[in-house]
């Protein structure tokens, strides 16, 4: 469906984002208990996921060529990604799915802005950003501990893979949302996604065979956590960088096309 690009569209979408953020933040402040249920618990959840890594280092001096502090660096990037998922992608997708089920998506579609932009900003859980902030701190500490002094080129590569990682995360969210147009029961895809996200704790080099391909190209956890860490440590080659960009482009374009088709089949539940 054409977004209808016109003068001032970009500005209006930015203002939409701002207004929605404001609204969600206001709602989040209504329930202060969210600081505990979303912020702190989310962080504990993610840190708990580190236990298997600790177990591995109990018995091994390295995990698939990664030393302990290198994995701490990777864990930092995991926290960043997981926080963004919990703060931005998951709430927006869940909220939109609820709106599809109850039919109130109608009002969203009646706005003179891109429906996908409306859906992706539908809800936002600011407390979960605690996890992201912790992740940034962990990355900085690990970089210092490892004595890394990344070059400009490496920082550029880091920026590229981080953007790619976040974009593919959003694209996966859009795909889940599109699927839920087809069948309401597919709404628990978000929990499948949460489960899978746990494997982004591990460097992609641990995985072998088809699972490695899946985590590199289909659900590209490699791009989200391994590549950013590698780009700082200095093990990220051109092939991986190009692969990351290609995968992200394919996912993003695919998600956009599938979204458009899903929207055409919208039946607007009447309650």
């Amino acid at each position: 469906m054409s977004a209808g690009f016109e003068h001032g569209a970009a500005r209006r979408h930015l203002r939409l984002l701002g207004a929605q953020l404001r609204l969600s933040t206001l709602a989040a402040l209504e329930y202060r208990v969210g600081f505990w249920t979303e912020g702190v618990v989310g962080l504990a959840w993610s840190l708990g996921g580190v236990v298997p890594l600790v177990v591995a280092f109990e018995h091994r001096s390295d995990v698939a060529g990664w030393g302990p502090w290198e994995l701490v660096l990777l864990t930092g990037f995991f926290l960043i990604i997981s926080g963004v998922y919990a703060a931005v992608v998951q709430p927006a997708v869940s909220r939109s799915m609820t709106q599809i089920r109850t039919g109130t998506l109608d009002y969203l579609l009646l706005r003179p802005v891109d429906p996908l932009a409306s859906c992706l900003t539908a809800q936002f859980e600011p407390w979960s950003l605690i996890e992201t902030l912790t992740g940034i701190v962990v990355v900085i500490v690990a970089t210092a501990k490892l004595g890394l002094s990344p070059s400009v080129g490496q920082l550029g590569a880091l920026a590229v893979v981080l953007v790619c990682g976040l974009l593919s995360l959003v694209a996966l969210g859009v795909l889940m949302l599109s699927a839920s147009f087809k069948a309401m029961e597919l709404q628990n895809l978000t929990s499948l996604m949460e489960t899978l996200l746990g494997f982004a704790h591990w460097p992609v080099s641990v995985f072998r065979g088809p699972l490695k391909l899946v985590f590199t190209f289909v659900v590209p956890f490699a791009v989200m956590t391994s590549y950013p860490a590698q780009s700082l440590i200095g093990g990220l080659g051109w092939a991986e960088l190009l692969g990351a960009v290609g995968t992200t482009l394919a996912l993003t374009v695919g998600a956009r096309v599938i979204w458009g088709r899903a929207l055409r089949g919208y039946t607007s539940a009447s309650s």
């Binding site: 298997p52 698939a64 597919l186 628990n188 489960t195 641990v206 995985f207 072998r208």
Partner: peptide, 28 residues
Amino acid sequence: YRTSLLVWVLATTMPLISLVLWRALARG
């Protein structure tokens, strides 16, 4: 709700991914 049941089954395949992971770590 068989579709959602299937998604649940898939969501609980986590042990199988752990299997691949620990199998690789135990290679040595």
